[in-house]
């Protein structure tokens, strides 16, 4: 494991009116980590993602990415720096074929800069990336209209759209949710391959079994506060975590 700090969050707080969605969260992420973020519904997981990626401006706190302060920067600037994200509610570019969805990130200034010139045939690159996340390499599926793809493929498409940006860090907001067991079983190796390829990954997930297989570190959010941080096995044994997830001890009757 590399010791380079890729992302550092200090005292991050977000208040929506009177509601504190994220409360004083500290986090240090090293390169090549897979960090799992778990917590009950409404605990601030997606807000945390929105804060890191700039879609929501923090009330207080600092976000430092690769030594640069990215607090309050606009989403496209942050993405340009190399943080890609998926969206929990998937909205593909519906009027475009699946592979054409990737043309958008492939046309971004970041990709141009990283390739240092022309990508060549962007369509071919797009098909390659789709295959990486588990699309069939045939004359049919990648060419289907994105609006006609089933859920499993939409999740993969979200992931592919991130990869096309050539990010250093990707944040996956519930990429397993709504998938069948069989589909998750094929997605886990995809995530493993991405990790092996050198990516740092933050995963928000409710599928704890798969998450714990992948993640080397887990944080738990509850009512916006970080209540636990550590290796998966330890975290799940902590009393606060059990209480937050399962409720306090059952009353015998």
């Amino acid at each position: 494991m590399n010791d380079e700090v890729i992302l550092e969050i200090k005292g991050l707080t977000k208040q929506f009116g009177g509601v504190t969605a994220v409360n004083n969260v500290d986090l240090t992420l090293h390169r090549h980590d897979i960090l799992g973020v778990i917590g009950p519904n409404g605990s601030g997981k997606t807000t945390l993602v929105n804060l890191i990626t700039g879609f929501v401006k923090p009330t207080k706190g600092k976000i430092i990415y690769l030594g640069h302060n990215i607090t309050g920067k606009t989403p496209h600037v942050i993405a340009d720096r190399g943080i890609a994200r998926t969206f929990q509610v998937m909205r593909p570019y519906a009027t475009l074929a699946a592979y054409k969805n990737l043309i958008v990130p492939l046309s971004s200034p970041r990709v141009k800069r990283m390739v240092g010139g022309s990508l060549g045939d962007r369509d071919a690159v797009a098909i390659d990336i789709l295959e990486e996340v588990g699309f069939e390499r045939d004359a049919y599926v990648p060419y289907k209209l994105a609006s006609s793809l089933p859920l499993g493929y939409l999740k993969r498409l979200e992931l592919a759209r991130c990869l096309a940006l050539r990010p250093d860090l990707i944040i996956c907001d519930e990429v397993f949710s709504g998938l069948s067991m069989a589909e998750i079983a094929t997605m886990v190796p995809v995530m493993e391959r991405l990790h092996d390829a050198g990516l740092t990954i933050i995963m928000i997930e409710h599928r704890l079994r798969e998450l714990f297989r992948l993640a080397n570190r887990v944080i738990v959010l509850n009512f916006g506060s970080k209540i636990a941080d550590g290796v998966p096995a330890e975290v799940m044994e902590m009393e606060e975590v059990k209480a937050a997830y399962m409720g306090t001890e059952a009353v015998p009757c």
Binding site: H76, A84, P92, Y93, P109, L165
Partner: peptide
């Protein structure tokens, strides 16, 4: 067309 379909995804792709 991406902007028309989903401007948030375009932003997340590093494009203003």
């Amino acid at each position: 067309r991406g902007v028309k379909d989903n401007d948030m995804a375009v932003q997340a792709s590093g494009i203003s």
